[in-house]
Simulated scan of single mutants.
Amino acid sequence: MKMTIVTDAHGNVLGAVQGHNLSETRDGVEATVSFAPGHSTHMIEVDDDLCAIDDVDEFQQRLRRHLQQHQQQP
Rank of each mutant, 00 (worst) to 15 (best):
Q68P: 07
D49P: 00
E58Y: 09
D27W: 13
A36G: 08
T25Q: 13
Q61L: 14
I5A: 01
D55Q: 11
L50S: 01
E24P: 02
A16K: 01
E30K: 14
A52Q: 04
E24T: 07
D8L: 05
H42P: 00
L22I: 10
V29F: 11
V46P: 00
V17M: 04
I5D: 02
S40A: 11
G38T: 07
M43V: 06
T4H: 01
R26V: 10
Q18C: 02
Q73G: 02
S34G: 06
V46D: 02
H42F: 05
N12T: 10
L50C: 02
D8A: 04
V29T: 10
D47N: 12
N12A: 12
M1L: 09
A16N: 03
S40R: 14
R65C: 06
H20N: 12
H20E: 11
Q60T: 09
G11W: 15
A9E: 12
V29K: 14
E30P: 04
Q71R: 14
D48N: 11
Q68E: 15
V13Y: 00
V6N: 01
I44P: 01
R62L: 08
H10E: 15
S23G: 11
F59R: 04
G19A: 09
V56E: 12
R62A: 03
V17I: 07
H39E: 15
H10G: 08
L14Y: 05
V29W: 10
Q71W: 10
N21Y: 08
E24F: 08
A31T: 13
N12F: 10
V6R: 03
A31H: 13
V33F: 14
R26Q: 07
C51R: 03
G19D: 08
A9W: 08
V29A: 15
T41R: 01
H20P: 00
V6M: 06
A9Y: 04
G19E: 05
V56Q: 11
D54P: 01
V6W: 01
S40I: 06
M3V: 05
A36T: 14
N21L: 12
R26M: 12
M3Q: 02
Q71G: 11
G19Y: 07
H70M: 10
Q73Y: 03
H70P: 00
E45W: 07
A16T: 03
T4K: 00
T41L: 02
D47Y: 04
E24V: 14
V33C: 09
L14R: 13
D57F: 09
L50Y: 03
I53H: 07
D48Y: 09
S23D: 14
V46E: 00
L22K: 05
E58V: 11
E58C: 11
A31N: 12
H70E: 14
Q73T: 06
D47W: 07
D49R: 02
Q71D: 15
K2A: 12
D8P: 01
T32A: 10
Q73A: 05
A52S: 06
D54Q: 13
A9H: 06
D47H: 09
H42T: 05
A52Y: 03
T41W: 00
C51I: 03
R65E: 10
D27Q: 13
R26N: 09
L50E: 00
V56W: 09
E45T: 03
Q18T: 05
A31V: 14
V6E: 04
N12G: 09
A36W: 14
R65A: 08
Q60P: 00
R65W: 10
E24C: 06
D55S: 06
T4E: 00
D48F: 01
Q61G: 12
P37L: 06
V46I: 06
T7V: 07
